[in-house]
Design a protein around this nucleic acid. Structure first.
Lengths: 407, 407
DNA sequence: CTAAATTTCTCGACTGTCGAGAAAAAAATC
DNA sequence: GATTTTTTTCTCGACAGTCGAGAAATTTAG
């Protein structure tokens, strides 16, 4: 059902627009904001005056006059307007980062994960402690933390911060909302890790291509397989989704997966799957809990030296990925695919299989091979994606709250 | 990039909102519009006055007073405000329908398709003639036809009315825009047939469930396999997409498909594929051009009597469909699946395979089987979908044009 | 015929955006 | 040093849109 529009909504949207451009381009002068947003100067004045009164942005000190004429007054977000805690859950550690409203990192530390398998409840306690720790290390009041942004591999509920399935805890659901609610007034959001990579890459593309950007997929290769899709939404924003790609069916009655199903893509292309194929272990063998990268490096070295079965293992993994990607492309529009994660170091071995797997589908034959690119530095992209999403969520919340509560 | 908002946009959106509720609920009184849209009475007055001045809606005659109080003045669309031509292309005929702005069917006829294989260009000429014929049978001026809405099976360009691939013409692209542009001032849109089915079913669901409606997929079974997905967009509207499901890879090196690839879902679940399996013809046999339904009925009858290989054919088809659906669900959220098309008459034989195929994936095991329902009357749904989409496109065009051009 | 009920319409208040031009402030020029 | 030029910021009035309240219209009930 469509919903009605009003003048307040106009102001809200334009306020968010101003905050977003400020975020994208850093401290800006009045005229620059007007240029970027295409809002009239008068409107920019009105909006920035409101935001300043609400203590969300501030006029920066006069900088050394750059040109002649009246010197510019730069506007920037007030760092102390609010804070964000980013929690990145990976298989062996949890990283906590405290970030101010301007996106500047204030404090960060990592905690080893207990490899306790029975630890869903204990794990949540660990997160609670970590959050309290990073808060108490700073001098920031708890109320000033506006958002806690969490990421993990696995399947996430699309509307609530609930981890539905993860490689580590399986189907032991974790509801971060209810776990943190009593202690934290902050909003809690949870995203799939590869989704954040896709979001970050989408922002990059947008900066480069501008309005021409249509869509992009990020594929993360590692012990598990992740996929995130970002595409331009109908009213200009980016819409992201993180399908359950790693556990999409690759082949009926295929290899046994960590999730308990058979034939998942991960069970043919994840690190443990490559290991299994390389050592000719039966496909229904229970997957290894953890595979040291060194182990895979050895197999890769052998494959590069022409060892048949080792090469075959990577090729099979590539095929599974390529088939899966072709299926994704059959269900979406054509889009470039960015490959990240620790598995990119074997891209030379995977590539042929990926392309062959892609080429087996009608859509790829018709539209041609999608652009494949390798993107390093997955960790930074995850963090960037956190900032992108979290800060724009904060912007929106601040604007709608500011409109109701006054200053 | 986000885009700026303005008060004119507010008026436009609210005008569209009024037209949409008028379309959904039929002729309405002032107060009812206010109730449905949640716009204030004053705003409704302003908007309807504008629309009336622009000759888009009209006050209907006083009806026999229903209750006491001042009698209601019903508002309704002016039928003669503009017209729509719906063109439904199916494998054996092309149906032309002339519809007025209120959605009322004025004229309709079908023309047999020439089964000429080399007929892409001639086919377009046929469509041109058909359009001119339905126009001249009426007394309507060409300029009054605001939109030509075309549907076909196959793959459609998402931004322009170009048929990229179709079962009949293969990769002989048909660009309806440029074919009709010289003669027709009307806008031309082209949609996949099953997408329209999905759109129509989505509208039904919305009427029943209201805001609870999230998403729905329509699966069309026949000689070819189609899929449409409709889901609630971020700002209330419905977003639809028609993936290339029928030619998604089911199984590497599987059966030969009409598209020339191997292993497409259609090549395992289309009518010709069922025939091929039932008669134990090798999977790389060139598919039959056309399969009479009577032929399949016979196989179905044998299958229902326990004939092994016939039953197997349907079961294999179901498996391909189920696997494909499970893959789709791995990439989207959970949603009910409505099955339509001539193939529904074999649903009793397909069902077990579909469910088994679905059950082989992680996501279905976790979230449970999606709701499967059989929906008859695909033809009506296609037409309904046309009206839904086309008339709302017209509404929007009229409002934005009206705002610029004055009355 | 009057009162009540119900619908439609109008008016004033409020909020929003915009264009134009005034005000501010520094560099360039005389 | 005074004046002009240039650039940026701010303010004012015009215009568009929504809303609530209440007036106007019109029928039924008594």
């Amino acid at each position: 059902m469509l919903t009605k529009s009003s003048t307040e909504l106009v102001r809200q949207r334009n306020s968010v627009l101003v905050l977003a451009t400020l975020r994208r381009h850093g401290a800006l002068a009045h005229t620059e904001i007007s240029d970027f947003t295409r809002l009239s100067s008068a409107t920019v004045s009105a909006i920035t005056a409101d935001l300043e009164k609400a203590q969300i942005i501030e006029k920066s000190e006069q900088q050394a006059a750059s040109g002649r004429g009246r010197p510019r007054v730069l506007l920037r977000q007030r760092r102390d307007c609010g804070y964000l805690i980013v929690v990145i859950i990976s298989s062996d550690a949890v990283q906590y980062s405290l970030v101010d409203y301007a996106g500047k990192l204030i404090d960060r530390f990592s905690e080893e994960r207990s490899h306790d398998p029975d630890g869903a409840a204990r794990f949540v306690n660990g997160v609670r402690e970590g959050l309290n720790r990073i808060l108490s290390r700073s001098r920031i009041e708890r109320e000033k933390v506006l958002l806690i942004s969490i990421s993990s591999k696995g399947l996430v509920n699309s509307t609530e911060p609930v981890l539905v399935w993860s490689p580590i805890f399986g189907s032991d659901q974790i509801d971060f909302e209810s776990a943190l609610k009593p202690e934290w007034p902050a909003k809690v959001i949870l995203d799939n890790e590869t989704l954040l990579v896709a979001a970050a890459l989408g922002a990059h593309e947008e900066n480069v291509k501008g309005g021409d950007f249509r869509a992009l997929a990020a594929l993360s290769l590692g012990h598990s397989i992740g996929l995130g899709i970002v595409r331009r939404g109908s009213h200009g924003g980016h819409e992201v989704s993180a399908p359950n790609f790693g556990h999409m069916l690759h082949m009926a009655n295929g290899g046994l997966c960590r999730c308990g199903s058979r034939g998942c893509i991960e069970a043919h292309a994840g690190f443990y799957a490559i290991l299994r194929t390389a050592f000719e272990v039966p496909l229904d063998t229970i997957p290894a809990k953890f595979v040291p990268v060194a182990e895979l490096d050895k197999i890769a070295a052998r494959a590069r030296q022409g060892h048949r079965i080792s090469g075959f293992a990577f090729r099979q993994a590539g095929l599974a990925l390529g088939n899966g990607l072709s299926r994704m492309l059959s269900l979406t529009e054509r889009m470039p695919i960015a490959i990240t994660g620790p598995g990119t170091r074997y891209y030379d071995l995977l590539r042929q299989g990926i392309e062959e797997g892609l080429g087996q589908s009608h859509i790829v034959r018709m539209e041609g091979m999608p652009e494949l690119r390798v993107v390093a530095d997955e960790q930074n992209l995850v963090f960037e994606g956190h900032l992108n999403r979290a800060l724009s969520v904060i912007d929106e919340d601040i604007v709608v709250a500011g409109g109701q509560g006054g200053d």
